[in-house]
């Protein structure tokens, strides 16, 4: 088994409803993944690219991994065009992901990634 990174994932603002109504999750993803998963439909044959190949797992990879492994219903409310749907805020270790390179942010062991929907009623 290839090396894994463990990250904490949290959902808020109603997004948790798509993930079994559970706000907090701990997930493990491979350290290295195939080069361009965003263009694939699924990540099923994408896990564990050999050392030196592909790219390091990033938030873009995590989003699709969550869709394929953790999401329970209505994927279109979470992912659109290979990234989170417009209107979903993402924080990397309590910082706006727009300051961290968005999907290009490379995951480190122990990172905390938060997804909050702004699309639910106020």
């Amino acid at each position: 088994m290839s090396a894994q990174i463990s990250v904490k994932v949290e959902f808020g603002g109603g997004l948790e409803l798509l993930f079994d109504n559970q706000r907090s999750h701990r997930v493990s993803v491979p350290v290295r993944v195939a080069a361009t998963p965003a263009e694939k439909k699924s990540l099923k044959d994408d896990t564990g690219a050999a050392e030196g190949e592909g790219r390091q797992a990033d938030v873009a990879y995590l989003i699709l991994w969550l869709r394929d492994n953790l999401l329970k219903e209505r994927a279109e409310l979470f992912v659109e065009n290979g990234t989170v749907r417009p209107g979903i805020l993402v924080l990397v270790n309590d910082t706006d992901w727009e300051l961290e390179g968005e999907g290009d942010y490379q995951l480190k062991d122990g990172d905390e990634i938060v997804f909050i929907s702004t699309l639910h009623g106020g």
Partner: peptide, 17 residues
Amino acid sequence: IVMYAYFKKLDYFSTEC
């Protein structure tokens, strides 16, 4: 508004009607 609620840890309810 959502970031303010998040960083202030305000208690709010979010479910679609």
